[in-house]
Amino acid sequence: MFKKFQPSSDIAGQTPVKSSVQRSIRSNVLSQWKIEPETLEAIWPKKEGLVHVKCREHVSIYTLHGEPLIFQHFDGPLYPTLRLLHKYPHVLPAVKVDRGAIRFLLAGAHMMCPGLTSAGGYLPPASEALPAETPVAILAEGKTHAVGVGITKLGTEEMKSINKGVAVETVTYLGDDLWAVQSL
């Protein structure tokens, strides 16, 4: 989503977010992420308003004091930016790719099933299976910090059984143009 993103040409406008909309974002975040209200309060104090940065192709980024925190495509799920995810790694369920997949991921490729099901990868066990279309943190073999944020295209159990094709679509990854933007 942010493989090619130029703040100078891809941003259509910035507007402060209405408080009613902020309330709905807040409740959506609380329901979609594994986050406690107190933690969200520390990240995004109630008193402070987000700024909605509208970008091309229906991408919205929400920033606080110019620092991107949350983004969204169209009306889709809300994703934390990678920097936010590094600070609060527990907010999204995690999947892990093996070492061979890292360099492809850093080039913006989507994650294929074998990279997740192989020995170096990790998928949640059957008891905590994730359905398709869940935002996930993408970790990498042998690393502690997340390398990307993605959305599952298959349920995790399906990934294990099919083991072919795109499993997680990469939304933002380390070193993409959103990563390069530290403030908007």
């Binding site: 406690e36 107190e38 933690t39 309060e41 520390a42 990240i43 590094h86 600070k87 609060y88 910090h145």
Partner: peptide, 8 residues
């Protein structure tokens, strides 16, 4: 207590 952020 809010969960403290991981210092990066």
């Amino acid at each position: 207590e809010p969960v403290p952020p991981v210092s990066m």
